[in-house]
Design a protein around this nucleic acid. Structure first.
Ligand code: FES
Ligand code: FES
Lengths: 143, 143
DNA sequence: AGAATAAAAGCACTTTAATACTTTTATTCA
DNA sequence: TGAATAAAAGTATTAAAGTGCTTTTATTCT
């Protein structure tokens, strides 16, 4: 459903948000190490997310990436749409050019049900929602 | 979730099953045209499926691919496992190396719910189940 | 037996995603 | 002001998925 890059993006943002408490910015290196991803890939991803106003960046010493209070209230679908585009949760499970109930593929009914759950998940959970359990040690970003 | 190749495989097999009625074998060309996919790709896919005993083939004139009565009773998870492997419905939604409820990622709960629906769909629907509505013109394999 | 047919098999090419590297620009701090 | 820092931006490489082509093998039909 989501590309590898996109999954990495979600984890990176959640990590950033969990860092927010401390008030410090986070650098590419720190983030990539924490979520166990390639430094270069993470750099590119964060660049894109800054462009889409999902997060912010500051250049120079003591610079890095950070996420504002407002931005933390975004739902995580914003991350997905910035990386994989707006169509991810609209696609047909068997690859028909368009998913539609009037011209459905053989698995449309059940597939749509599942896809809608995921779409709802991404469209309703905010960054802060997902970062809390990470801070509490209930959920994890690597391993 | 599923690779493009895998989606093509499912459609090819459903088409084959819907052809079964006529008792004739279907050639690569015919199948690929019907499901609107590359001839070469379909050839490779069908080869793999024959190796996994999902379908059968006969070489030579009046040869082609066909699916037996028994094979039509398989669930479509067999197709998926032949192409994309057995892990597809076990993977973490955020790319953690293992999806587990004791070491979950932040979206585990909802994601697992959706993934289980899809897994159940593929594990319970048989080829014949999905080919019937196609024959009746209720669902489609292309478009 | 021999010609024709059609899948099997192996190899080569293309495209895309992912990763790596390099240069530039903005910022801080001594 | 200038050195150091860190992201931005652009380019190149690698890896994987998908597609295309060619040869081989098995089968049928004349
Ligand atoms: S048409 Fe295939 S999932 Fe809706
Ligand atoms: S751990 Fe991520 S989906 Fe289960």
């Amino acid at each position: 459903m989501l590309s590898y890059t996109c999954k990495t993006a979600v984890k990176a943002v959640i990590y950033l948000a969990s860092k927010y408490e401390s008030g410090n910015n986070a650098g590419i290196k720190e983030i990539s190490e924490y979520i166990n991803a390639s430094e270069h890939t993470v750099g590119k991803i964060l660049q894109t997310l800054v462009k889409h106003n999902v997060i912010n960046s500051v250049k120079g010493p003591s610079g890095g990436f950070f996420i504002s209070k407002e931005q933390r209230k975004q739902t995580i679908i914003n991350i997905v749409e910035s990386i994989d585009g707006k169509q991810v949760f609209k696609e047909c499970g068997l690859g028909l050019s368009k998913c539609s109930s009037t011209h459905p593929c053989p698995i449309h009914n059940d597939y749509k049900k599942a896809r809608d759950i995921i779409e709802k998940l991404f469209g309703s959970k905010t960054i802060i929602d997902l970062c809390k359990p990470v801070n509490n040690g209930l959920t994890y970003l690597m391993g």
